[in-house]
Design a binder for these strands. Structure first.
Lengths: 200, 200
DNA sequence: TCTGTTGTTGTACGATCGTCCAACAAGCAA
DNA sequence: TTGCTTGTTGGACGATCGTACAACAACAGA
């Protein structure tokens, strides 16, 4: 009576395990270290299994980006809901959560970099990026609309807020010592003041 | 009488030639394609020469980033100078030039991505990034100061403008079809309006 | 218990990677 | 012209990459 050499698990669960292993490897070793073998070791499976669930390493990276971005969005949404019903408080919670520990994190940046490096060359991945970006912007437009931003300004302002938050997030990940998450949040909230001010 | 098999050139010129070849390869093949051999072919030299001028491929990428960023800064500075003496016009020229063709360019993004992927893991490269970022921010602070931004607000506002411009620039490179360079410039100039408005 | 399905293994393969270094030759000084 | 310095070559080297595939075994159903 010996222990089984491996366990079969549901395909969706295995896919998820590989995605999460990929995210951990990206966080630990960076974009350059995310090889099929390293990911397989992290997931506790053999290298061949990666090819069984994903058409290639690029597809796994793209799926990992989609999964990590979804988790980030969930965390931000929870912060927005926790802020209560006041539209402006919800908008503030959105930007504050974007710089919270675990979100503005150098280890997360590696996943974004690995994905960005594929966007230019692979049309399918560029389409995925466009889709995720427009989804993120739509949620921001809804928050802005609730604050009284007129419909014809929502697109432009959502692009602006998104760019400001992303730029601050990126710099916070690249040089964590340059300015703090609190400063980033204060800068972003001050920008929201100018957008929601009634005299514009 | 036969043509020489190769030409000796001044070390600084050879270094520059390798850096420019690296930039072209990054633009054409992306971060993943920037191998020693591909760069050597692009420069018209043998692969061994790369190791003779740079301690490794990472050092060449770092030098390439520094060089490309300097060229970008020069182009922006030229635009600022061409705007004349009016401080606000110079500030507008700064952001407008940041989205000009050849600056907001997907081909340039590959150089930034290749560099960013090294920042987290390599302390020396992180230090280089901090230095280049603070230099870029200092020039922005000077432009803001000339517009009447008080000294105690210059650091915060420069961080904000830099983040907004970088965020717009990044998205413009990743999805060129999502919004235009003109829209990005308009968004950034509108933000400058709020900063330079006398009532704040 | 036995059988069939298929998730999983482990390796082999060719390609490509970064680095290294002995040999070569271009160009300057004598 | 000759000799010396050293920029440059080009291949060898081991490591690692992504992918493919035949064989194996876990597990459900009979």
């Amino acid at each position: 009576m010996k222990a089984p050499a491996f366990r079969r698990i549901e395909p969706d669960a295995r896919r998820l395990a590989l995605i999460e292993a990929c995210a951990r490897v990206l966080a630990r070793l960076g974009a350059a270290g995310a090889s099929v073998r390293a990911i397989a070791v992290e997931a506790g499976v053999s290298p061949g299994l990666v090819g069984h669930y994903f058409s290639g390493i690029e597809a796994l990276v793209a799926a990992t980006y989609a999964h990590v971005e979804e988790r980030v969005n969930e965390a931000i949404d929870r912060a927005v809901e926790a802020a209560g019903p006041a539209p402006r408080a919800r908008l503030d919670a959105f930007v504050t959560a974007s710089f919270a520990p675990g979100i503005a994190d150098p280890q997360l940046l590696a996943t974004w970099i690995a994905f960005w490096s594929l966007v230019t060359a692979r049309p399918a991945i560029a389409a995925q990026h466009d889709e995720q970006y427009s989804g993120s912007r739509a949620r921001l437009e809804a928050l802005l609309g609730a604050c009284g931003i007129p419909a014809e300004r929502q697109r432009r302002d959502a692009i602006a807020v998104s760019a400001l938050v992303d730029g601050l997030w990126l710099e916070l990940c690249l040089s964590p010592g340059c300015f703090t998450a609190e400063e980033a949040g204060a800068i972003a909230r001050r920008f929201l003041d100018t957008l929601t001010s009634p005299d514009r």
